[in-house]
Write a protein that binds this DNA or RNA. Structure first.
Lengths: 215, 215
DNA sequence: GTGCTTTCGTTAGAAGTTATAACCAAGCTG
DNA sequence: CAGCTTGGTTATAACTTCTAACGAAAGCAC
């Protein structure tokens, strides 16, 4: 968030306005969702009128791309201290949930249904793989020692997504399962599909985490 | 799809045009996603111009509501014969996946990030609970006989969503887990989040199903 | 300080969108 | 046949994103 790194006062102003625009955009996304984001509304809320925003962002897509990047970075930043402290699967999972509940639309922006026009740029993939790396680290310590399923055999030959991480196929499998199961509960909860059902999604989430830990 | 049930020729025509509109809408959704659906584009593709559609649907929201209802009904119709034949968890799960892959946007329309303005009407919940009922039936036969987790204790007291289904808490838990795990893999796959990773999502899906079966 | 240049913000306008209103031409019905 | 209902049309309003052209202000060189 603080890329105001001592340049010309012009650039400083520019960076500050860009940040303010993103701030407004996040507010709007938090209330109405990403696909309802309106450049005009942002401009009006900032006191500027209409096309002034195009001095700062080439268009709606570039703004969304920037927001997606920020969201990924925010998640990575939330997880990194835990990962560096050697936190396990459980702590990481609950951190993800906490981060998602703090701003549901932010989670849905990056892991939900993709916005029609937008396509992820390359610099997203490196942050995404950082997050995946932290998941792999957390899964490395608790090995499930099951029989090598056909999936793990397949993963042994298709491990490009793990980068240079030296995890055995069983850990790759475990990280994938961690990711998809957490996302399964979280996304349905955030999208409101548990709304009228009456039970506590948090308990289901912790039950999934506990199951992953063999409890 | 065939609700042309012998009325006045006027109503027959009306129903046919409504069906044709939905047909066009599905085409458009399949290519660009639900949030990019344009009434004008549908009208133009049908040879009619603009506001003529408002004779058939009150607005974008009503059309989407109708499409959501059709999608739920379609999923229920795809699962019902299996459920009535006493199919187990495995067959049901793969049927869900097949249905989802046949038209990804249709799955994402009902289980993905909700469209901004729209709110589900009541008649959706009955179809949704029919689907949940079939999941519960499929889970009833293979009991996992684990220790009663705190979640299952909670579910024993919050089982309103299961309707009148006589499933014990362990089965409620199992159905919930089935639903969220399948959705976790499916939604990430359909949203394209496995795109650059290189592995086969189908194997991950079947691995999750197999794990659910205790294999 | 004076003048040049870059940048910012503005208004105007084009091409879209959803949605309403008014009108006209059909068709079914008494 | 008369009349009412219904379908489709255009015109309009209020939006949206985005481009173009203009004025003003700020920074920089001298």
């Amino acid at each position: 968030m603080a890329e105001t790194d001592a340049k010309s006062p012009r650039e400083r102003y520019r960076a500050q306005v860009r940040a303010e625009i993103k701030e407004c955009a996040w507010e709007q996304i938090a209330t109405a969702g990403a696909s309802a984001l309106s450049l005009n509304a942002i401009a009006k809320r900032m006191g500027m009128s209409g096309p002034a925003l195009y001095r700062y962002y080439a268009g709606r897509d570039e703004l969304i791309t920037e927001l997606v990047g920020d969201a990924y970075r925010s998640l990575a930043d939330a997880l990194r201290p835990l990962s560096e402290a050697g936190a396990g699967l459980e702590a990481l999972a609950h951190a993800v949930r906490g981060w998602a509940l703090a701003d549901p639309q932010r989670y849905l922006l990056i892991y939900g249904t993709p916005v029609p026009g937008y396509h992820a740029p390359d610099d997203i993939t490196v942050i995404s793989s950082q997050i995946m790396g932290m998941l792999l680290d957390a899964c490395a310590e608790s090995v499930p020692d099951g029989p090598a399923a056909p999936l793990e055999e397949h993963l042994a030959g298709h491990r490009g997504w793990a980068g240079a991480h030296p995890a055995p196929p069983a850990v790759l499998h475990r990280a994938l399962v961690l990711w998809t199961r957490l996302h399964g509960v979280l996304s349905l909860e955030l999208a409101g599909h548990f709304a009228g059902m009456g039970f506590d999604p948090g308990l289901l989430f912790t039950a999934e985490v506990d199951h992953l830990l063999g409890r």
